[in-house]
Write a protein that binds this DNA or RNA. Structure first.
Lengths: 107, 107
DNA sequence: ATCGGTTATCGTCGATTGACGATGGAGGAA
DNA sequence: TTCCTCCATCGTCAATCGACGATAACCGAT
């Protein structure tokens, strides 16, 4: 418990963080269970936003491999990408990340 | 951060949490990347300590499978087990878990 | 309409994972 | 000693992962 001292029957104050169950937490952990994906998260966080090509350059793996890692992170809800013309812009999902943090912190 | 408000150049107060690099963080996440292992952590936390057989009963997988999961968690530094006569007693490694939490929180 | 740049998806291959039963060793009890 | 219990390890099998090149789809500009 850190931000939310206010728990029980009070008004919803600010973004109730979803606490994931075992299954979901494991899935999110699995998405992080690869150095390249951890690095991708850091890259996205540092630049606040980038297109796939930027990530390919930064991480140094094949484009198809990066695209796959991005898919895994996206399906885990840790990042989100929006199509922007011919390219796709990715950013970390603060909601998803918060959920992961909450789940880990609750251990 | 929860326990340690005291950070910088003060005397080392209580267990400076090691912040893991990408590789290590990924390895710890990988250890959590399975529902059974998440559950095992919860079981250990709830009972503060248990022998392998208890975990087998609680989780409901084959003894060899549980033993393997315990090994993975142990090698990731998330739990520690001490041999106690004919059985092995496992408990959560607060240091390892703190390291994981720090790594995740730093994302 | 066609071309060039940017991504996602497909197919493949070797490596790793996860599950289980079987085996073996280390302790306590008889 | 001789059991019996508890646990880790081994061997095996199917399933999944990770990386890559090749291909296709999509869009903007020419």
């Amino acid at each position: 418990m850190s931000t939310a001292t206010r728990t029980s029957r009070s008004r919803r104050v600010a973004a109730a963080v979803a606490v994931p169950d075992d299954e979901t937490l494991a899935a999110m952990a699995k998405a992080l269970a690869h150095p390249a994906r951890v690095k991708i998260l850091r890259v996205l966080d540092a630049r606040t936003t980038c297109v796939t090509g930027d990530v390919v350059t930064e991480v140094g793996l094949a484009q198809s491999t990066i695209s796959e890692h991005l898919r895994i992170l996206r399906e885990a809800g840790l990042i989100q990408g929006e199509i922007e013309g011919p390219r796709t812009r990715y950013c970390v999902s603060s909601a998803g990340l918060a959920s992961l943090k909450a789940g880990i912190a609750a251990l």
